[in-house]
Simulated assay, not measured.
Amino acid sequence: MSDKCDLCLLGLIILSSLLTGSSGEDHVFISSGVNVSLSCNKALSDCKSTTWIYSNTFRNSAGVELITLGIKNKNTDRHERLSLESDCSLNIKNVTEEDYGSYTCQQYVNYRQYHQTGTDTHVFLHVLHVSPSSSSSSSSSSSSSSSQTEISPGRSVTLSCQLYSYTVVSCDNWFSSEGFELLWVNQTGVDLKTDSRYQILYLSSDHCMITLTTTLLNEDNNREWRCQLTHRDQLQTSVTYTVKYSGEKTVLEEPHNVSNTGVYQYH
C-alpha cells in the first residue's frame, strides 16, 4: 500500500513539473474530427532545420519523428494528415483520438552533429471524443467524428465521452488537482445531471470518461447533447451529438472545437 501511495505521489510531482515547468509547455485541448496547429518557437529563418517528435507514453523516451529537417516521414500511418506551416507549426488534419500525446519541436543548426538552437518546444495534445452505442442497434461504428448508430424512439442509447490525455497519474488525481471537469449539457447549457431521465456515470481512475444513458423519446428528434471539458469553470472544448430519426442514422456532427480557450501555456 505504501509503495502504491509513493508511486501516486511521484506521479503528481512529475505532472506538477510538467504543468508549471519554467520552460513552459502548451496544453492543447481539442475535439476529434477537427484540425489543429501545434506551435513551435521558431528560432531560424526557415523550417528546413525543424524536427517534430511524437510520443504517447512516458516509457517511450525516443518517440517517433513525424518531421525530420522540414520533411515529412512517410513511414508513419498519418503522414497524409500532417503538414508544416511557414512558422514551423505542425498541422494535423481531422484529429482522431489516437493523435493524443506529446509533441516536441526541435531546431538544429547542424543536425548530424546535434547542434541544436534554442530549447525544445513541448506541446501536449489532449483529444475529446464521443462514441455512441444503442440497444438493439443493427449497426454501429465509433471512428472519429463519423460515429453513427441507427436509433429510434423507445431505444436506450449510451454516449461515451472520453478525454484522451497524456498524463502520468490517474484521471481522478489530475482532474481534482488541476480543476478539470467533464459534463453533459443540453442545448441551453443546463447540466443533464439535474434531469432524472438521464443517467450520468463518471468513469474515473485511469480513464477520463463520462457516459450519458437515456431512453429516447419522440421529441428527441434533432435534439442536441453536448459533452464539454472545463478547466476551473472555463470551457476548453466540446463535442455535440445530435439525434436524428425518420429512418436516418444518428450522426456525431463535426465537433465544435473551442479554439480560443482550448490552448494555454504553463510557465
Rank of each mutant, 00 (worst) to 15 (best):
M1F: 08
S2V: 10
D3W: 13
C5V: 15
C5P: 07
C8M: 15
L10Y: 15
I13N: 10
I14T: 13
I14K: 14
L15E: 12
L18S: 11
L18W: 12
T20Q: 13
S23R: 11
G24C: 13
D26G: 00
D26K: 07
S31R: 01
V36E: 05
S37G: 12
K42S: 08
A43P: 02
L44H: 04
C47H: 04
T50M: 05
W52L: 06
N56K: 04
N60H: 10
A62W: 05
E65V: 08
I67W: 01
L69T: 13
R81I: 01
L82W: 00
L82F: 00
S83F: 03
S86W: 06
C88H: 05
S89F: 00
I92T: 04
K93G: 04
Y100P: 01
S102K: 12
Y103R: 01
C105N: 02
Y111Q: 05
H122F: 12
F124A: 06
F124T: 02
H126G: 02
S131P: 06
P132L: 06
S133P: 10
S135I: 13
S137D: 11
S138K: 14
S138N: 11
S142N: 12
S143V: 08
S145T: 15
Q148M: 12
I151R: 02
S152H: 03
R155W: 08
L163R: 04
L163T: 05
V169Q: 08
C171S: 14
D172I: 10
N173S: 14
F175R: 06
S176T: 10
E181P: 01
L183W: 00
V185P: 03
G189H: 03
L192Y: 14
T194V: 13
T194C: 08
T194W: 03
S196F: 09
Q199E: 14
I200Y: 01
Y202A: 11
C208E: 00
C208G: 03
T214G: 04
T215L: 08
E219A: 08
D220M: 05
R223M: 07
T230H: 02
H231D: 08
L235P: 01
Q236H: 08
Q236V: 09
V239E: 08
T240H: 02
G247R: 01
E253V: 12
V258C: 11
S259L: 12
N260Y: 14
N260P: 01
G262L: 11
G262W: 09
Q265Y: 14
